[in-house]
Amino acid sequence: MMDFSVALLYVFSGMAVAGGLGLVLCKHPIHGAISLLFSMLSLAGIYALLDAHLIAALQVIIYAGAIMILVVYIIMLLDLGSADAQTVYRKAGLMGLPLLALLLLLLGQGMISVAGDAAAPPLAQGPVVCPPGVACETDCGDGVDQDGDNMTDCADTDCAGVAICFGTVEAVGANLLGPFVLPFEIASVLLLAGIVGAILLTGRKPGELEPSVPPPAIQPGSIADASGSSEAQDTEGAV
């Protein structure tokens, strides 16, 4: 059983990396988006196998369900693809790839020597052992608040390391609304700002129409001319 889940982790890891490569290599954005979706679902599997159940569920709902669908929707709405097909890659960017290889090497060298290669410790199964002289939640599955701090079972931080609690909605939620309540509130303000910003950016005032004559699409060949003229303007502005 243990071996099977570990093997599954490697399989999901391979799928996640393959999905990521697909995003970078696929020429059409919609294929890239589907690859990324695939990668994210694999990551959700990894999270579930790492006992982060809430995160796994949210990965499926938020990333795969909401964010990626928005991206796919925008790709379809704008009907992209064919226009950029012949110019998928930047030549200048390809020259940076050795740099990335070096980065991967350094990350592996630097951080793995610190992190170590130990497997994750097994989660506790039985009752919680309290430190001497301090009351705590001993049984995390009986629906009774043993230490009388108004936190029952998994919602009590005493139960954080127990198998039936680790990574559950209750346990993460108790953390989120406990010591991290201020970041939590700030995150909600950020979301609100995001909503307002998105509406302001895309919404049109009543009566305002789509520009009737779109500016001419700039072909790759004409870029040099356009950039040349704007460069001249910029130099003037700088002086």
Partner: peptide, 28 residues
């Protein structure tokens, strides 16, 4: 004005930082 080049420069910066950390043992 080319976003890809900016990304390349940022990666170069990360490489330099990591070289400092790994090479000189800073923070370990």
């Amino acid at each position: 004005g080319d976003v890809g080049n900016y990304a390349t420069i940022m990666v170069a910066g990360m490489v330099v930082l990591l070289l400092v950390i790994v090479g000189f043992g800073v923070g370990t």
